[in-house]
């Protein structure tokens, strides 16, 4: 469904992605792991078009999307939930959800999707008129994910959805991720919490300094010492063990 072929991306003159190749098949959850600064977020930004690769190709459903604008890529069916949730804080919860469907033209279906999402996440209905900035961190994460779902994505890019959340909320977020997979959404997931990510994922990639250093099924990676080292560096143990 999604294929990256030796992608190189830069921030100005800073060479961040140095030939990243990976693929995601339809229906999969793929985890993208790695230490801070390895280039995971940059990879997602390159896929969603916020950043243009200088070399290499991003293919989605057989089409080269590496030169398309972010707006055009959303319309192809890729929704990106950015790091730190980035809800539109002074707009209402309902307005945030509506904006998620900005690119869609099927207005009737948007309405019913909104109903459905509000039923699935009742908090978003209760707080519909409140500014999104007044929600708690976990609620904002749910809103950010729900907002992305309003685009009816075929592929969902999630950047650290559990960051800064209490364990109970982390569980809830991962339950949502699993549910999304069951309903047919393909997911590419970045997670600080590697163990939790590999529990829901089918496969995973480990990134190190702008390159993919390792890939395999979730079970393989779970047992791989290299993962622990690459992901967490020294003193990984306590985080790994939770």
């Amino acid at each position: 469904m999604l294929t990256l072929k030796s992608v190189h991306s830069y921030y100005g003159s800073l060479h961040v992605l140095k030939g990243v190749s990976l693929h995601v098949r339809a229906g999969e959850i793929v985890a993208l792991l790695g230490a801070n600064g390895a280039g995971k977020t940059t990879t997602l930004k390159t896929i969603s078009g916020l950043l243009k690769p200088r070399k290499g190709q991003v293919e989605f459903q057989g089409e080269d999307i590496s030169r398309l604008s972010a707006e055009a890529i959303v319309q192809r069916g890729i929704a990106h939930v950015p790091e730190g949730r980035r809800v539109f804080s002074s707009l209402s919860v309902a307005a945030n959800l509506e904006l998620g469907a900005f690119a869609r033209r099927d207005h009737q279906a948007v309405k019913s999707d909104l109903q459905e999402i509000q039923e699935r996440f009742p908090i978003l209905r209760e707080r519909a008129k409140q500014p999104a900035g007044t929600l708690s961190g976990g609620e904002q994460q749910i809103l950010a994910m729900a907002r992305a779902l309003m685009a009816r994505p075929k592929l969902l890019l999630l950047d650290e959805p559990s960051m800064g959340l209490a364990p109970r909320l982390v569980k809830q977020i991962f339950a949502i991720i699993r549910h999304l997979q069951e309903t047919g959404t393909t997911i590419l997931l970045i997670e600080q919490n590697a163990r939790a990510a590999l529990k829901v994922a089918d496969r995973g990639y480990v990134m190190e300094t702008g390159r993919i250093s390792l890939d395999g099924t979730a079970a393989e990676l779970m047992d791989h010492n290299e993962v622990k080292r690459a992901y967490l560096g020294k003193g990984y143990q306590e985080v790994w063990e939770e």
């Binding site: 604008s69 539109f88 707009l91 307005a95 690119a103």
Partner: peptide
């Protein structure tokens, strides 16, 4: 309003 608040995220909405 969304664009005024956060341009990159607005683009991710297809704006």
């Amino acid at each position: 309003m969304a664009t005024a608040l956060d341009q990159d995220t607005a683009r991710l909405m297809g704006i």
